[in-house]
């Protein structure tokens, strides 16, 4: 195309020289107009091409910088958030178990003491208790009431501590929701990238190595679609007994 344009210009130039030599002013002006018209149309074409290139570059640049931000900032952020979720849930579990470990012996003592006194009380009702022992029992009952009040108070404090520890659910729920949003944004950008690159690339399905990448906890509706997981302990027991366990 460029060659034919060069030829046309050369022919026009020769015609222009001929017209000037023969003093044909009108013809010469016509040829000059034609040449400058050609130059203008070439310039417009070039400007058009550059504009389109600029537009595409701006588009892909915007997507690039979005991807750069996602990978350099948002994903490490998300990892941090998820680590924080682990730390918070660990803290809540420990806080709860500390209360349980503290209260279990207290409730055991209460139960032992009540059993002991109940046995004595039965003997008293059956008129099977000397007066001296009855006096001791009365004293023991007084102590038991005082200790019970104290122990029940610490059980109640412990229950409130357990209750408060459950606050992690709200906070971790919010953090996880943000990570889900990020994953969605990431997915959107990647789809956009595939579209811009011509949509030719079909997603390659990579075979996962079961040895290296353990599937981990089953998330209902996500990991149980292929029906190759045990849904509960009964499933596990059935499978094992089918293997001779």
């Amino acid at each position: 195309m460029m060659e034919s344009m060069e030829n046309t210009r050369l022919l026009l130039a020769k015609d222009l020289v001929t017209a000037l030599e023969s003093n044909d002013e009108i013809k010469a002006d016509e040829i000059l107009d034609q040449i400058s018209g050609m130059r203008e149309s070439m310039l417009f074409q070039e400007v058009g091409r550059l504009t389109r290139q600029l537009h595409d570059t701006m588009n892909s640049f915007a997507l690039d910088s979005k991807m750069v931000e996602l990978t350099s900032k948002d994903i490490p952020d998300a990892k941090e958030r998820l680590h924080y979720v682990i730390a918070m849930t660990e803290q809540a579990a420990n806080q709860t178990m500390e209360v349980i470990e503290h209260l279990t012996p207290i409730s055991q003592e209460l139960s032992d003491q009540a059993n002991e006194l109940s046995n004595k009380w039965d003997r008293f009702l059956a008129k099977d208790m000397p007066f001296e022992e009855f006096k001791n029992m009365s004293q023991e009952i007084t102590v038991h009431f005082a200790q019970t009040k104290e122990r029940v108070a610490s059980v109640q404090t412990g229950l409130i501590d357990i209750l408060m520890a459950q606050g992690f659910q709200d906070i971790t729920g919010q953090i996880i929701r943000r990570v889900i949003d990020l994953v969605q944004e990431m997915e959107h950008s990647m789809v956009e990238l595939v579209r811009l690159s011509g949509g030719k690339s079909k997603t390659a399905i990579v075979e996962q190595s079961a040895e290296l990448d353990l599937p981990g906890p089953v998330v209902p509706g996500v990991d149980d679609k292929a029906n190759d997981v045990a849904a509960n302990q009964d499933d596990v027991d059935d499978l094992l007994s089918s293997l001779g366990f």
């Binding site: 079961a210 906890p217 997981v229 045990a230 596990v236 094992l240």
Partner: peptide, 8 residues
């Protein structure tokens, strides 16, 4: 938490 049949 590993619950795949092949793992069991």
């Amino acid at each position: 938490a590993e619950a795949k049949r092949e793992q069991i």
